[in-house]
């Protein structure tokens, strides 16, 4: 029988499968449990990658439940790229549909937060916009467009996502409030930090990211959130390096 990587791969990911028959110990005896070294390497390394990639989910579930869940995910969703830093893209959706954890409704959003923190960590460096541009003539400021820096990632949640993160991963252990929270992950230097956004800010960032002018974004946000505080959000955006020079999406 000739070697088939397809057969080897299937047997690696499914411990119930027979070991491929053409493998020996080098002296003619069937390889037996020697194949398990590879099975174990693959499964353990992938579970470990998920543990590193999803620290908030790990904290919420505890190591035993996390490992049992991750083991199932790994078997169903092996990586599709050698870039292990991005492994787990489907983990939030997997958790959403995973019945045994359906009672933990906020878990998928927590997994999205973990993923976004990792994406931010590896995102391209970018120059923040010079705050002096806001001293231009009002017409120029109102018609100016910006981009969001690649390391700034917005998450909109119907759960108190920031409070859950802060209680489990931050310094402040106070209990989450029963509110929906928008979170902006920023990376002023090298370490991504989540920030909770005030009313309207997420709308405003989405419009800026969509290429609306400064004036349009403000006007449209006020329609949805009359209490939107532009000065506060703009200060936060400039201090955190969220705004970058405008780059046309189609160029």
């Amino acid at each position: 029988m000739t070697f088939s990587q397809a057969e080897f791969t299937v047997a690696l990911l499914d411990p119930e499968r027979d070991i491929p028959s053409n493998l020996t110990d080098g002296a003619g005896t069937p390889a037996g449990s020697r194949f398990s070294v590879y099975r174990n390497n693959v499964t353990v390394s992938l579970i470990r990658a998920l543990q590193e990639a999803f620290p908030l989910v790990l904290k919420l579930l505890g190591s035993n439940t996390f490992e049992r869940t991750a083991r199932l995910y790994v078997a169903e969703h092996p990586p599709t790229s050698p870039l292990m830093m991005f492994y787990g893209e489907d983990f939030p959706a997997f958790l959403r549909d995973f019945k045994p954890l359906a009672h933990v409704g906020y878990l998928p959003d927590c997994a999205k937060l973990d993923l976004a923190m990792r994406r931010s960590y590896h995102a391209a460096d970018s120059l923040a916009v010079d705050p002096a541009v806001f001293q231009d003539a009002p017409d120029q400021v109102l018609t100016r467009r910006f981009s969001l820096s690649p390391s700034s990632i917005l998450l909109r949640s119907s759960w108190p996502l920031f409070d859950i993160w802060r209680m489990n991963m931050g310094q402040d252990g106070s209990k989450p409030r029963a509110i929906a929270q928008d979170v902006m992950i920023v990376r002023p230097d090298f370490d991504p930090q989540p920030h909770v956004l005030p009313s309207g800010a997420a709308d405003w960032f989405e419009r800026i990211a969509a290429g609306k002018t400064f004036g349009e974004a403000h006007e449209q946000t006020l329609k949805r959130a009359p209490d939107f505080d532009l000065a506060r959000t703009l200060t936060f955006a400039l201090q955190s390096g969220i705004l970058a020079d405008y780059e046309k999406k189609d160029s």
Partner: peptide
């Protein structure tokens, strides 16, 4: 060694004949 088969990356250095 090999580590990818089709669309799947197995994150280990696997043997070949």
């Amino acid at each position: 060694a090999w580590s990818t088969h089709g669309a799947e990356f197995l994150n280990d250095l696997l043997p070949l004949p």
